[in-house]
Each structure stands twice: as C-alpha cells, then as structure tokens.
C-alpha cells in the first residue's frame, strides 16, 4: 500500500530536481509537468482507497470512490496545461531573442545587451 506512494514521492522529487537543477529551460518546464503529474496521481490514488467503483451513480453502484479529488484534479490539470503553454511560448521567444535555451546563457546575453 505504501510502495505506490513512495514511487509518487520519488516522481515528485525527480520533477522538482529538474526544475531546480536543469540548465535547459525546456527541461524545467518538463520538470514542472512531472511534479504536477505526481500530485495528480497522489490525489486520485488516495481518493480511490475508499471504494471500488467509478463515481457514476446507477444501478448496483454501492461503493464509489471519492469524487472530490477527481473533480479538483480536473481543475488542476487544466491549470497545469495552461501554465505549460505559457511557459513554452516564453521559451520560444527567449530562444529567438538570445539563440539559446540554457538559462545561464540567456541570462548572460540579456544582461550584456545593456
């Protein structure tokens, strides 16, 4: 029961270390997505511990899983996608402006313009 959560925890750490440590800005965006996905998995997994059936009411449906985390994650996923789209658009512009995707190079080239 705990092993899934430890895997999710490791997944979150992988994503987070990419955000902090990766030099490439596209990899940072990937890291953000991995971190986001880990949290979504965590909510859905833990919310499904209390039931067996999908939360769609009907004949013979008795033990549904908790639908609240699913509804919350629906919102969180869409927000995550929107933020990713914006981040990638910014990355494209930064690449066009500086000719690099490495965060240090971008920062250095933008500073030296002045």
């Amino acid at each position: 029961m705990v092993i899934e959560r430890i895997l999710i925890f490791l997944l979150a750490l992988v994503g987070f270390s990419a955000i902090v440590g990766a030099k490439n800005i596209i990899k940072k965006v990937f890291g953000l997505n991995i971190l986001n996905a880990a949290v979504v998995l965590l909510y859905i997994l833990e919310g499904s511990r209390i039931g067996e059936q999908a939360p769609i009411l009907g004949e013979g449906v008795t033990t549904i899983v908790d639908p609240v985390p699913q509804a919350l994650m629906l919102t969180a996923i869409v927000i995550g996608v929107c933020v990713t789209a914006l981040a990638l658009a910014l990355a494209v512009r930064l690449y066009k402006a500086t000719g690099s995707l490495e965060i240090d190079t971008i920062s250095e080239r933008l500073r030296s313009e002045h």
Binding site: I19, I25, K28, V29, L32, V83, L86, A87, L90, A91, R93, L94, A97, T98, I106, S107, L110, E113
Partner: peptide, 13 residues
C-alpha cells in the same frame, strides 16, 4: 523588452 520575458519565465516557474 526581452528581459521582461526572462523575468516572466522565472516568476512563472
């Protein structure tokens, strides 16, 4: 300005 893009990106991430 191009610097604004980098600032926005940093803030976003």
């Amino acid at each position: 300005k191009d610097e604004a893009l980098l600032s926005s990106f940093t803030y976003l991430i």
